[in-house]
């Protein structure tokens, strides 16, 4: 057994153990912390299978932001809002058998793959030059399948509107409450020092994403985290839902995307096509808009809806 194989096996065993522990452990808080650790390990896995872009996304969005989100609800849910009764033993066995069957089939397909692994990598490489970017994943996200990326930002926007739709009626338009009553001094210090650095890092990761691992989703998550830090430290309160500036920040990315996409009808012969030679600047323009919008969306998703009315 080579060293890397040993490391891989150790990683896999730890992750599966952690996953099982997350399902069986009684304490919800512990399970959530386990999930965040799991996210860290998972991002290592992404590096091992040569997907650093995904690794960055996983650590920022999958483990980090999702974990923070889950923590927000932990104390509330432990009270016992059961969705279903504790299942009977035969039902447990049935579900166990079904879930096991799915895992077995999947495992079989993984171990016996098709003789030739189909891939679009050569095709993606062939057209890479015409997109002007060096990172093939950015080319997929912003050129070949840009429509998916556009719709994805709409998905996040609608999820945010869905979260906001849960605002109690009296609180519509108010600010979500993020900061606690008394902010600890260390947190304040952290916010003051880390946030400028974090903003630089977030923008850097977006910028570098054109040619190297990175991109707007990862960068926007860092920006959103910095914003959360500012709000938690009470340096700035969260914007009101009715704030015109917030609304504009939310829609600017999709709007630029649509504007450039629609102008493609005229200038490049197709929706979301880029004119020759202008692909890279246009992609960067869209990414800049998306960075703002996605950061705003993720930040407001993390902040949650306002729960009591204090209209500004």
């Amino acid at each position: 057994m080579t060293e890397t194989a040993f490391f891989d096996t150790l990683l896999v065993v730890t992750m599966i153990g952690l996953a099982i522990w997350m399902i069986v452990v009684r304490d919800v808080f512990a399970a959530i912390i386990g999930f965040m650790a799991f996210g860290l390990l998972l991002s290592l896995v992404w590096l091992r299978i040569e997907a650093p872009d995904v690794g960055l996304t996983e650590i920022a969005v999958g483990g980090g932001a999702t974990g923070v989100m889950l923590l927000r609800a932990r104390g509330l849910a432990s009270a016992g809002d059961a969705m279903n009764a504790v299942p009977s033993v035969p039902f447990r066995v049935l579900v166990g058998v079904l879930a096991g069957a799915v895992a077995l089939f999947l495992g079989a397909l993984v171990v016996f793959p098709p003789a030739v692994a189909p891939t679009l990598a050569p095709l993606a490489a062939e057209h890479l030059a015409s997109t002007g970017v060096g990172n093939p994943i950015t080319a997929v996200l912003m050129a070949y399948r840009a429509f998916d990326t556009f719709l994805e930002t709409v998905v996040v926007l609608l999820a945010l509107i869905g979260v906001w739709s849960l605002t109690p009626d009296g609180a519509w338009g108010a600010r979500p409450r993020v900061a606690s009553a008394d902010v600890p001094a260390p947190l304040l210090l952290l916010a003051q020092w880390l946030v400028p650095l974090g903003i630089v890092i977030g923008i850097y990761i977006t910028w570098v994403g054109a040619d190297e691992p990175g991109g707007k989703f990862q960068g926007a998550t860092i920006l959103a985290a910095m914003w959360m830090l500012v709000m938690m430290a009470g340096l700035r309160s969260a914007p009101a839902l009715s704030s015109r500036r917030l609304r504009i920040a939310l829609v600017v990315g999709p709007a630029i995307f649509i504007a450039i996409g629609v102008s493609g009808f005229h200038f490049a012969g197709a929706f979301l096509a880029y004119p020759d030679g202008l692909a890279k600047p246009l992609i960067l323009a869209i990414e800049a808009g998306l960075l703002i919008s996605i950061a705003a969306m993720l930040g407001m998703l993390l902040a949650g809806p306002p729960l009591e009315g204090d209209r500004p």
Partner: peptide, 13 residues
């Protein structure tokens, strides 16, 4: 340095 900073803050909290 970042880990130091974040770790120290976390420990304080």
């Amino acid at each position: 340095l970042l880990v130091q900073f974040a770790g120290a803050t976390g420990a304080q909290l």
